[in-house]
Measured scan of single mutants.
Amino acid sequence: MALNTPQITPTKKITVRAIGEELPRGDYQRCPQCDMLFSLPEINSHQSAYCPRCQAKIRDGRDWSLTRLAAMAFTMLLLMPFAWGEPLLHIWLLGIRIDANVMQGIWQMTKQGDAITGSMVFFCVIGAPLILVTSIAYLWFGNRLGMNLRPVLLMLERLKEWVMLDIYLVGIGVASIKVQDYAHIQAGVGLFSFVALVILTTVTLSHLNVEELWERFYPQRPATRRDEKLRVCLGCHFTGYPDQRGRCPRCHIPLRLRRRHSLQKCWAALLASIVLLLPANLLPISIIYLNGGRQEDTILSGIMSLASSNIAVAGIVFIASILVPFTKVIVMFTLLLSIHFKCQQGLRTRILLLRMVTWIGRWSMLDLFVISLTMSLINRDQILAFTMGPAAFYFGAAVILTILAVEWLDSRLLWDAHESGNARFDD
C-alpha cells in the first residue's frame, strides 16, 4: 500500500549564491595573561575582544583620537594649579581661619623630617597626573615632529594605576569627618577644581587605549598563520617573532617567553612588605597634641575612634588600611606557593584573586592621604596640633611594595603550573 505524501511548494523562490571570495581570516594573537594562541577576527570600533580561555580583555573598544586626548590633557593642565594650590577646605580653629590644600599637606610631611613619605604622596597625587598630561601632550606634538614615541607609550600603561586623584578625593571626605570634632569646616574653591580634575582624569584614563596608539604610530604586520613560536610582548602586546637582537619589532624591548626574574622580584617585594606591615600596624601612625597632652593612634585605634562619629567612614578606612593590605599579602603568598608547588586545582579562583588584588591594591594609600591633609588643617603649635607617627613611612612603603609585587608577577606562570593543553579552566 503506497502512502500519498503531499508536496510542499515554497511560496518564495530560494536563491543560492556561491561564495565568490575567501572568507576573511583572523590574525593570530597570544593572550598576555595566559599565553593562549588564538585567531582574533577583525574588530570594529566600539567592540571589545576577550581571550577565549581566561576571559582577559585583549582589545578595548573604547578609543579616543589623539586630538581629543590632547584637549583633555590641556584642560587638566589648566585645572591643576587651582586643584593643588587653592584651598580645598576652610576650618575655623580657636577663632582663626585655616586653609588646607594639597601642596601644603605634602610640605608639612616633608617639613617634619619625613621627606620619603611626603614624596610618596607627591608622586601619586601630583607627579603621576602631571606625567600623564605631559605624556599625552608629548605624543600629540611628537607625532607631528617625527619624534620617538616608544618610551612614552611604554610608560603610559604602567602609569595608570599610580594616578590616585580619586583616592585622594575620598581622603578629603575622611579628613573632614575627623577634623569636624575640633573645628567648623567649609569647602574651599580649590575643592571644585579638584573634583573637576578627578572627573576629567577618570574619563581620560578610561578612554586612553595605549594598544590602539601603538597600532597608529607603529603598525606591524600581524601573524596570519598559526605558529607556536609566536611570542607576545608584555610592553606593547604585539604578537610576532623577535628581531635579530631578540627584541620586539614594535617597542624594541627584549621579547622573552616569560617575564625575567618574575618570581624572585615578586618574592622579594612580598617578604619586604610583610616585614614592614608589622611596625606599620604596631607603631603610632598619627599623633595629636591637645592642650599640651599627647595622644597617639595606631591604624586600628584611629579607626575605632573614627567609628564613634561615623561608622560608615570608619568601615571604608578599615577596608583600605587593614583589610586590603593583608588580603593582598595572603593572596600573593598563596599564588606564589601554588606556582612553586605546581598546583593544578582552583586555577579559576587564583586568576580571579590576582585580578582582584590588581584592582584594589592602590586604595591602601588612602590613610597616607588623610594624614597629609589633616596635617595641613590642624597645626596650632602646642594648643592643638596633628602630626604623623613613625608607622606612616612603614605603611606607605608596604603598600608600594605590594603594588610592585602584583605588577611583577607574570600571570602566565600560573598556567605553566597548571596542566598543559587546557582550553578551559575551572575549579
Rank of each mutant, 00 (worst) to 15 (best):
T358W: 11
R350I: 06
A268D: 06
W359K: 13
R412E: 00
L130A: 14
M109W: 01
I339N: 10
D416Q: 09
N422T: 07
P254Y: 05
A272G: 11
A268R: 01
L300P: 03
L197R: 00
V210I: 15
A83G: 05
M164Q: 10
L93C: 01
L40E: 05
I43L: 06
H418I: 10
V331R: 01
S309C: 09
L200S: 10
P254S: 07
R62G: 12
G171W: 00
R231S: 10
L352Q: 11
A2R: 06
C251G: 00
R247H: 10
L373I: 08
V198Y: 15
F123Y: 07
L277G: 03
G315F: 12
H418S: 14
D427M: 11
H340W: 11
P390G: 07
F238G: 12
M365E: 07
F141L: 13
L290S: 02
V125C: 09
V232D: 08
G171V: 08
G113L: 14
R150W: 02
K12T: 06
V102L: 08
F217P: 11
C233K: 00
T117C: 10
W363R: 05
S119A: 11
I199M: 11
G26D: 06
D114V: 05
D410Y: 00
G20Q: 06
F74L: 09
F425D: 11
S411R: 11
R59V: 04
S308K: 12
M356K: 07
A175L: 01
R362G: 01
A187E: 09
G118D: 03
R231L: 10
F393R: 07
S338E: 08
L208D: 08
A320N: 01
L276E: 05
A73Y: 10
L66Y: 08
R362M: 03
G361M: 00
V195L: 14
T9E: 06
V232M: 14
D416T: 10
K13F: 07
S119C: 06
A56T: 08
P222R: 13
G105C: 03
L93I: 04
M72R: 01
M356S: 12
P249R: 08
N101K: 02
Q108R: 07
F341G: 11
L283G: 05
V399Y: 01
W92G: 02
W408K: 03
L413C: 09
S45A: 07
L40K: 09
A314N: 00
S372D: 10
S372F: 04
A49E: 04
E419K: 12
I383E: 01
G190T: 02
L37Q: 09
V357F: 01
L377F: 11
S45C: 08
I43W: 09
E86W: 02
V210F: 15
N422E: 06
C248S: 00
G190M: 01
Q186W: 07
W162K: 01
A100S: 09
A56H: 08
P129W: 03
F122H: 15
I199G: 10
C236E: 00
P81F: 04
P219R: 15
R225P: 14
I96H: 09
G146E: 03
Y182D: 05
I339V: 08
Y138T: 07
R348L: 13
V329T: 10
G421W: 10
M1K: 01
L154P: 03
F38G: 05
D114K: 04
V163Q: 06
W415T: 10
F341C: 13
Q382K: 03
G389R: 02
G171I: 01
L384P: 00
D426V: 07
I378T: 01
R294A: 06
I96Y: 04
L132Y: 05
I288C: 01
F141T: 03
R247G: 13
Y218R: 14
E419S: 12
T327D: 01
L139K: 03
L78C: 07
R30K: 08
A2E: 04
